[in-house]
């Protein structure tokens, strides 16, 4: 028993290290590779020269690669954690920001902002959060008010998703100048990440991740069910709302930078749950790491495969992620299933 306990603990530590190493690696290659390749020497030189330097290497690093890599790291972490939190709060493994319309809510807000000429800054982040939060609360309150089953919650989310998507499409029809960027936005795209977009989104994401990291006990207690959680003194209504708000903030910030990346929020938490179990205090940090690494690696690939052209990152993510996900699902069959 002792042995198996230490073994499983060692496996979990190994998973942390492996994911950290992969994430670091994907970040570094993300900074090096692209239409113009930088060497490690160029990288350190440009890093030392600072943002003010006018050398081509420094300009590429600081104004093309850096915001993009930071953007992909942060949105990957944000979407994966958002997915894990939403799945936990709705106790529904089929839920994720893209499935239940949270991304679509943020997407509608961002599209509306673009039509109004707001392309970055705090107003955009705020609008994205408001859109995401409205969508998640609509689904969550609807589920509670009508006592919907887990399957019905997903259906309500899917309906919400199409409705919000239809509004977005309507805006692009009425305001054709918005439609130009719309394609990249729909499948997810980091090429338009600039500092005015990155900085407010990064602040929101880091703050939300920090708060969520203090709420992992609450997430685990919520998994005991409504009565079980209340019997342990948890104010379930307030905690659910707070957690959904944070999940919406994460998804909204990610969407405001990168558009509608759909796959991360559903797949990453599931894959990690199968690999390391569902305890929130482990799952949340692992999701942040894995989401960041996966999205960044996919974005780098998307720039390299057809260089100097870009292949949309959303497509790369689906090509890589889906088979891997299927593999884990089949291997982990009968493990930590949760419908």
């Amino acid at each position: 028993m002792r042995n198996s306990t230490t073994r499983s603990r060692r496996n979990k530590v190994a998973l942390y290290f492996a994911l950290s190493a992969l994430t670091l690696l994907s970040a570094v290659t993300g900074l090096l590779l692209g239409a113009a390749e930088l060497s490690l020497g160029d990288l350190f030189g440009a890093l030392r020269a600072g943002m003010g330097s006018r050398t081509p290497e420094a300009l590429i690093l600081w104004y093309a690669r850096m915001p993009r890599v930071l953007g992909s790291l942060l949105s990957g972490a944000a979407l994966a954690v958002s997915g894990a939190v939403i799945q936990g709060v709705l106790s529904n493994g089929l839920a994720s920001p893209s499935v239940i319309g949270v991304n679509a809510g943020a997407g509608l807000a961002v599209t509306a902002c673009a039509a109004a000429g707001v392309m970055g800054g705090w107003r955009l982040s705020l609008a994205a959060f408001a859109g995401a939060f409205a969508a998640v609360m609509a689904v969550s309150l609807g589920a509670r008010r009508f006592g919907a089953s887990r399957g019905t919650v997903i259906l309500m989310g899917v309906a919400m998703n199409s409705l919000l998507g239809a509004f977005s499409d309507a805006i692009t029809v009425l305001a054709p100048e918005v439609a130009v960027q719309r394609n990249g936005f729909r499948i997810g795209d980091f090429s338009a990440v600039t500092y005015p977009k990155l900085i407010p989104a990064a602040a929101v994401i880091l703050l939300s991740l920090l708060i969520i990291s203090t709420l992992t006990n609450e997430l685990e207690v919520l998994s005991l069910g409504e009565d079980g959680a209340r019997a342990l003194g948890l104010n379930t209504g307030a905690v659910r709302t707070l957690l959904l708000m944070l999940a919406a903030a994460l998804a909204g910030a990610a969407v405001s930078m990168a558009g509608l990346l759909s796959f991360v929020g559903l797949m990453v938490p599931h894959a990690l749950r199968l690999l390391s179990g569902g305890e929130a205090r482990r799952l949340i940090p692992l999701c942040a790491l894995a989401g960041a690494g996966f999205v960044t690696a996919c974005d780098t690939l998307s720039r390299v495969i057809l260089a100097p052209y870009e292949f949309p990152v959303g497509i790369v993510m689906a090509f890589l992620g889906a088979p891997f996900f299927l593999f884990i699902l089949i291997r982990g069959k009968g493990g930590h299933g949760r419908a």
Binding site: S91, V221, G225
Partner: peptide
């Protein structure tokens, strides 16, 4: 009737200390 949360036994019992 109770959920079967994705927790280890130790974690579940520890949450008895949640209050």
């Amino acid at each position: 009737s109770r959920e079967t949360p994705e927790l280890t036994v130790e974690r579940l019992v520890l949450h008895g200390r949640f209050p």
